[in-house]
Structures are given as structure tokens and as C-alpha cells.
């Protein structure tokens, strides 16, 4: 791999929450200008990984570099400066509930630039047009559906034309139509702006259709990585279980528990 083409580098990352180890040595290279997907079953810490990349959480050991900057060694002020070059799309959209759609998209520009009002208006309308919600600019977030919220959040995330954009479960809980819309949008945004994208998801079909490179997380480690085409034909049992959505396999259906029969028969000794 050519090192100068890496935008984000995750090296030997360990992270635990309480007694639970979430990451046990994760290494990742996220290439510049490509869409990289991070996949894995629910609870494998995908969102946590995004928060580590964004500098909202601190790892136990290991480091994350973005464009050569060690995220967790930066001073608070430098970290906030770095974040201006990133956009993040939260699972819930996370729009500011006291601001209208227009003001939400205008927010990053208002706080980070001195653009005149007329120009802010033009840029906001442009971004809203890109996600197809120019007509909804005067609505409040509470009046929008889940899919629309996410589209507005996408418009806000790209308002400052970031170099890196992080998508947290963009397809979860969407109806097929808005799912299709979002897939198209993410692809379009990436092509138009040439930015680096990281998508965290467990919706295999949609993610595979737009990702250039895929990492699969399991048990706190990178289980497999490769291009979508390579992974689809991977012979590893765990990879193929995940890729083809089989209910039971190496990744067990059951939460770890004592033996079923002895557990049921052992009624008197219940805790």
C-alpha cells in the first residue's frame, strides 16, 4: 500500500469501556478519496470506532492519525480546528432541534466563516438542493421524517466541503425508497466533492454497492478486509456467515449462557 495515499490510519487500537474490551488491536488504512466501509455485527463497536476517529473518545493504547495528525495528541483547540475538515452524519441525524432546517445547514458556515448573509443563503440552498430538500428549508427538525432528517444532516455535514466524512449507520431504519435515495446521495457526494468517506454499517447490500474497500470487524479485531468483490467470495466461515446473513455459524446466535437443559432443570438454584 502506498502510504501517502492514506488519509486516516488506525494503528494497534485498544479501547475498553468498563470491564468490556471493545477493541483489541485494530489496524486500518483508509485511502484518500475513496469510500471505505466498516462492517460488523451490532455491538461490535463500529460507532465507537467513529468516535475514536473523531477524537470524541480516547483509546487505551494505539493511535489514530488523520492526514498525518495524531488525533489524540492534539490540544483541544487544534482538535476543533481539525474537526472543521471533517463532517459526520449521525445515526439520528442529530440536527439542532431549536433551529430550522435552513439554520441547521447554515450553522457550520455561521460559526466558522465570515461569509456575508447572501452567500450563506446561496450555499445553503445549493446544499439543500443537492439532497432534494430545498423546499423544506423553513421546517423545524421535529416536522421531518427520519429519512429527511438524515438528508438534512448530510447537507449540514457537507456544508463546509470537508475532506473527510464519517457516516454512522446511514441506512438503519430507512424505508427502501429513502435507503435508495441515501445510497445515491452518498455516492454522488463522494464523486462530486472527491472526499474521503468512512461508512459504518451492517446493511451489506447497500454498503457493498458503494464501498471501494471494506473492513469487517468482529470480536474487537479486524476479521477481514478487501474489496467488496474479494470479500464476497471469501471462503472464511465467519466472513461468509456475515456476508450472506446466515443466522447461526461461527458468530453464535446465542449470548454466552450455561447449558440450556441444566439451566432449565436447575430451577431451584436460580439466582
Amino acid at each position: 500500500m502506498m502510504n501517502d495515499s492514506q488519509f486516516v490510519e488506525v494503528e494497534n487500537l485498544y479501547f475498553s469501556r468498563g470491564d468490556k474490551e471493545i477493541f483489541r488491536g485494530v489496524d486500518m488504512h483508509i485511502p484518500r478519496g475513496k469510500i471505505t466501509a466498516i462492517m460488523g455485527p451490532s455491538g461490535s463497536g463500529k460507532t465507537t470506532l467513529l468516535k475514536l476517529i473523531g477524537g470524541q473518545l480516547y483509546p487505551d493504547t494505539g493511535r489514530v492519525q488523520i492526514d498525518g495528525l495524531d488525533v489524540h495528541r492534539l490540544k483541544r483547540r487544534e482538535l476543533f480546528r481539525l474537526r472543521r475538515r471533517m463532517g459526520m452524519l449521525f445515526q439520528s441525524g442529530a440536527l439542532f432541534s431549536d433551529l430550522s432546517v435552513f439554520e441547521n445547514v447554515a450553522f457550520p458556515m455561521r460559526v466558522h466563516t465570515d461569509l456575508p448573509e447572501a452567500m450563506i443563503r446561496d450555499v445553503v440552498l445549493m446544499k439543500l438542493e443537492a439532497v432534494g430538500l430545498r423546499g423544506a428549508r423553513n421546517l423545524m427538525p421535529a416536522e421531518l421524517s427520519g429519512g429527511m432528517l438524515r438528508r438534512v444532516a448530510l447537507a449540514r455535514a457537507i456544508a463546509l466541503d470537508p475532506e473527510l466524512i464519517l457516516y454512522d449507520e446511514p441506512f438503519v431504519g430507512q424505508d427502501p425508497i429513502s435507503m435508495g435515495v441515501l445510497v445515491e446521495l452518498i455516492k454522488k457526494v463522494n464523486q462530486a466533492l472527491g472526499l474521503t468517506a468512512v461508512i459504518v454499517s451492517h446493511d451489506i447490500k447497500e454498503t457493498m454497492s458503494i464501498a471501494d474497500y471494506v473492513y469487517v470487524l468482529s470480536d474487537g479485531k479486524v476479521m477481514a478486509h478487501g474489496t467488496p468483490a474479494n470479500l464476497n467470495v471469501d471462503r472464511d466461515a465467519r466472513v461468509s456467515q456475515f456476508m450472506h446473513g446466515e443466522p447461526d455459524g461461527p458468530v453464535p446466535f446465542h449470548y454466552p449462557a450455561p447449558d440450556y437443559y441444566s439451566d432449565i432443570l436447575n430451577e431451584g438454584a436460580r439466582p
Binding site: 470524541q56 476543533f80 480546528r81 474537526r83 463532517g87 440536527l95
Partner: peptide, 21 residues
């Protein structure tokens, strides 16, 4: 509620310190 709905996180990711704002 702002924390629960990730508004504080998203403000941080926009590069605005929610403590100050």
C-alpha cells in the same frame, strides 16, 4: 436531551465546542 440526541456530539464534530456554545 441534547446529549441523548447526539446534538452535543454533532456540534463537536462540526468543530464547535459545546462547552462554550
Amino acid at each position: 436531551l441534547m446529549k441523548a440526541t447526539e446534538q452535543l456530539s454533532s456540534m463537536e464534530m462540526i468543530g464547535v465546542d459545546p462547552l462554550r456554545r
